[in-house]
Design a protein around this nucleic acid. Sequence first.
DNA 1: CTTCAATTCTTGAATATTCAATATTTTCAA
DNA 2: TTGAAAATATTGAATATTCAAGAATTGAAG
Lengths: 144, 144
Amino acid sequence: MAKPNTPITEHLAYLLAQANREINRQLELRLSKEGVPVEQWRILKVLSDGSGHSMGELADAVLLNHPTLTKMIDRMVSDTLVYRVQDPNDRRKVLMFISDRGKVLSKKLNSLAVDQEEHILESYGDKSTSELKRLLESLIDSSN
Amino acid sequence: MAKPNTPITEHLAYLLAQANREINRQLELRLSKEGVPVEQWRILKVLSDGSGHSMGELADAVLLNHPTLTKMIDRMVSDTLVYRVQDPNDRRKVLMFISDRGKVLSKKLNSLAVDQEEHILESYGDKSTSELKRLLESLIDSSN
DNA sequence: CTTCAATTCTTGAATATTCAATATTTTCAA
DNA sequence: TTGAAAATATTGAATATTCAAGAATTGAAG
């Protein structure tokens, strides 16, 4: 009688991976106009509040592992998009700041990202989008 | 006056990445009991319908790029979880099948994955979960 | 038929990510 | 105050992923 196991497409973990992959692909496509990976957009966006963020804080915020972030920041420092400053209050820490060049790029990237959000709003709908966001936030909350 | 740009945590792309990362991390943790990465669970699950799936079909289904899948399948063939058969109708294609050993493992993995879904249902709620799934499916649909 | 473009999968080299170990600084208990 | 443990960031080696190119087969137009 072969019990028809739950198809993979009904697992929440799979649906999230699929949706994430698709939306990320679209965003990637837009950001590629500026030759920047999604992670760098996130980094610039977080740093564009102008204050210094430690590497640990930043790694959490941009969803990257520590060593991966370190190496990506190395590249961004070479591109003079960000710079390191040792935290004077705790010298184990490094504070990251966005440069002027970084700010300029960040603005361009933001408008590309906003483009995408608007495109989603159009095809997916205002109501669904905000409802989805609400549910995702609450899922993330409930996972801590 | 410094226009307070949309925080990254309000972007759908970011919320999806964050939720996906968290749920995936939890699933990874459970599957690690059998020493198997999430992608292999997906592969085994798709193949456990018993029929042959081409590499291209499989790559789409399990959300992996072609070359990445090829190399992962190489490992799984070594572990005798799956095997390749040339498609007799189109010899460009390779059909993948699950082995008996693969079926046994697949069952164990499924129960670990079901565990997780149940855990999510408990902490997140029945209603929210099914509503989230519905919205994700519809987002994926609207992206094609 | 024959040839050329398209499809499917794999390979090898270039890149990127991860794990474990290391260096530095801070914290805190004895 | 000292010394051990914890916290923070980086490094180097091992591993995995990706990009571009290649091999095999099919399709289809002339």
